[in-house]
Design a protein around this nucleic acid. Structure first.
Lengths: 85, 85, 85, 85
DNA sequence: TCTGGAGGATTAGCGC
DNA sequence: GCGCTAATCCTCCAGA
């Protein structure tokens, strides 16, 4: 047998791996749901969800890198006459 | 003040929401890393990661729905002469 | 001047590049719309759009590769007792 | 027969639809390749591709909408003490 | 309105 | 190391 017939050791290993992944995926999904709830809570308090997402994304970037990117963008924008304000 | 000046109540609320999201996101990222590790472990044991992913995806679908889709696909494939085997 | 001030040569180059990209993007969007229309047409004729998408995706894969993947999937599915049929 | 057996009218319709989609997809892919080339050309001239992509994305947004979003972002950023500069 | 799915963009992993 | 492909993420839209 090639090692993957039913009940073989390899089959068991595979099943266990798949089940571990599924368990972890469920946990992750639960957290994703929690995150969604926080955004909804923010929205209910009057905050704009999209802007909140931008904030979170920006804070993930190291300040120096973020500012460097921003300056480059402003340089380019100015060059082609795009007003970022 | 419009409610979002520094140190205002709203500003505090916003900061707390953002921080909760960041904490949850970190947790989720940790789990994503764990999942990735399981795939790597499977790969190291000789399993094909892409196929494992397909398995996980298929198992998320209810059997009757999955089979219904599969039958429809086979009907269409046969109609245009595509050999699925 | 650093080479990107307004009206500089570099600024002109940048603007031209951006405009070319925008033109191409519009063309591409037009084609995407056409594709969407064909799916809608198929749907109106009674075909299932999702299954049509699967067909298109499958036909992009070389037959030997596709069958190889399918066989591997079936092997794995059988090993963990997942009924694909 | 349910209308999708080989050589039936429906089967022909399906095949034609699929083929139209494939033709359009090829065209679209060609344009995508062209776009990629323009970015490469820009990169070769010394421009940063990522920033160019940002420019293109920003120009797709109507100025008033873009500025409105930017102002909101700055308000939020200031509230939580994030320095956008 | 809000939920799910499709499209597009970004990013990570892989192979050359 | 870079370019390419594949996967994930996020946004947008259609449908309920």
């Amino acid at each position: 047998m090639s090692g993957l017939g039913d009940n073989s050791v390899a089959a068991d290993q595979l099943r266990l791996l798949i089940e571990r992944i599924e368990r972890l995926s469920e946990e992750r999904q639960g957290i994703s749901d929690d995150i969604k709830d926080v955004y909804l809570e923010g929205k209910a308090t009057g905050f704009d969800a999209k802007t909140m997402r931008k904030l979170v994304a920006l804070r993930k970037i190291r300040p120096d890198v973020r500012m460097e990117s921003q300056m480059l963008l402003e340089t380019y924008a100015s060059a082609i006459g795009l007003d970022l304000v």
